[in-house]
Amino acid sequence: MSVIDLRPFSKKRINQYIDKFMKMNKKSKWNENLSWTTQQYAAALKKYPSLYKMMEEPFLLRMILTILPSFSKQYPLATKISKAQVYEAFNKQWIDSRVKKIANQLKEMHPQKIKFAFQQYCQELAFEMFIQGNQTAIENDKEYKKINICTKPDPTIEMEIKCVEKKSKNMNLTQNVWERYFNGDSIAKYVLRRVGDNEYQFLHKSCQEYYASQKIIFDIISWTSDMIDIDDQEFQKQFEQYIPNLSINCKLLNEEIGIIQFIAERIHDTNKIYTNLESRLFRIIKASKNSEHINIAAANAITILNSANVNMNDKDWSNIKIPGAILDRAFLEGTNFTNANLDNVHFVQACLNKANFTNASMKG
């Protein structure tokens, strides 16, 4: 019986893999952009010390080697690179290659639209896999069987259809082309790998975790108020109405450490699009004081903040509801948890000096 070695790569094995990686690419020419020499890789890797620890993981090593030529142009020397940034660059490059292939067949479609569709599809599917607790997406053959539906318009809308029929004729041509490449079976061939009859998975579980985390993040940071001039109190009030529908409120992330870590890394990301992520996670926790319907979101939010090593000392978190949150090794000195719902919350090795737990529920 063959044995798969999953131990982290040593420095020697990393160098051996780089040589093998270069030879494979040169032979197959599967990536025309990877024309670097061993010396170029070695020099570039010295510029980014934070990548060395990641390179011990075989899948991450290949990912880093794939993106390093373009990566070195994007980030200054000695920049601290996070795992999330590596996955972002790899998936961008990976999607770009597929967009290029499809764009050659869809001359009338803009590549950016195709790319956006891929990203949205990946995020939605990855999050659904998280919700279902299943890394395999199963295609249902029945979905593609012809269904007999009466196509005659109802009397009340028949005249309306005739009025727009001519206008929509040209639009339907473009939509049909789009459906051909982005409906169910077709898109699966590009963004997933087939693992059995009608069964598909992401290239790696970590890719699914990355996309699921991106969906959760963008759900949180994409909300904007309709009001131009708005104070903090009104902003919080409006945001609280939006929280119940967030994907972060669907299911506890506790068993998906990879997703938690990807989101946590974005808290410290210098990219401006993540500027409000940390503050909005705090807003979600605060909102749980007034609602029973966002306990999951609040628990996930505080778990993510803790994973990001965010200081949570001296917070007024009386009446918050975060059942099931993970606050192991959290900084909670002087924090007020009066009347809070802390059922099944983990506090292993947490700093709780002068924390107030008066009348807090701490079952489990």
Rank of each mutant, 00 (worst) to 15 (best):
residue 12 K to P: 02
residue 17 Y to I: 10
residue 17 Y to M: 08
residue 22 M to D: 10
residue 23 K to G: 08
residue 24 M to P: 07
residue 28 S to A: 08
residue 31 N to Y: 07
residue 36 W to L: 12
residue 40 Q to E: 10
residue 42 A to C: 01
residue 51 L to F: 01
residue 51 L to P: 00
residue 52 Y to P: 04
residue 53 K to W: 09
residue 62 R to I: 14
residue 69 P to W: 01
residue 70 S to A: 15
residue 74 Q to I: 08
residue 75 Y to D: 00
residue 76 P to Y: 05
residue 76 P to N: 07
residue 76 P to V: 13
residue 81 I to H: 12
residue 86 V to C: 09
residue 90 F to M: 09
residue 93 Q to S: 07
residue 95 I to C: 09
residue 105 Q to I: 13
residue 110 H to F: 03
residue 110 H to S: 00
residue 115 K to D: 01
residue 118 F to M: 02
residue 124 E to K: 05
residue 140 N to D: 14
residue 145 K to T: 15
residue 146 K to T: 13
residue 148 N to H: 09
residue 154 D to C: 14
residue 156 T to R: 07
residue 159 M to A: 15
residue 164 V to Y: 11
residue 165 E to W: 12
residue 176 N to S: 11
residue 179 E to K: 14
residue 179 E to I: 13
residue 180 R to E: 07
residue 181 Y to I: 00
residue 184 G to N: 08
residue 190 Y to G: 01
residue 192 L to F: 06
residue 207 C to L: 15
residue 211 Y to M: 15
residue 214 Q to E: 07
residue 214 Q to H: 06
residue 216 I to G: 05
residue 223 W to K: 05
residue 228 I to P: 00
residue 234 E to Y: 09
residue 249 N to G: 03
residue 249 N to Q: 04
residue 254 N to K: 15
residue 263 I to E: 00
residue 265 E to H: 15
residue 267 I to W: 04
residue 272 K to P: 15
residue 282 F to W: 04
residue 297 A to I: 02
residue 299 A to I: 06
residue 299 A to S: 07
residue 306 N to I: 04
residue 311 N to L: 02
residue 312 M to D: 02
residue 318 S to K: 03
residue 350 A to R: 01
residue 356 N to T: 14
residue 359 N to T: 01
residue 361 S to P: 00
residue 362 M to S: 00
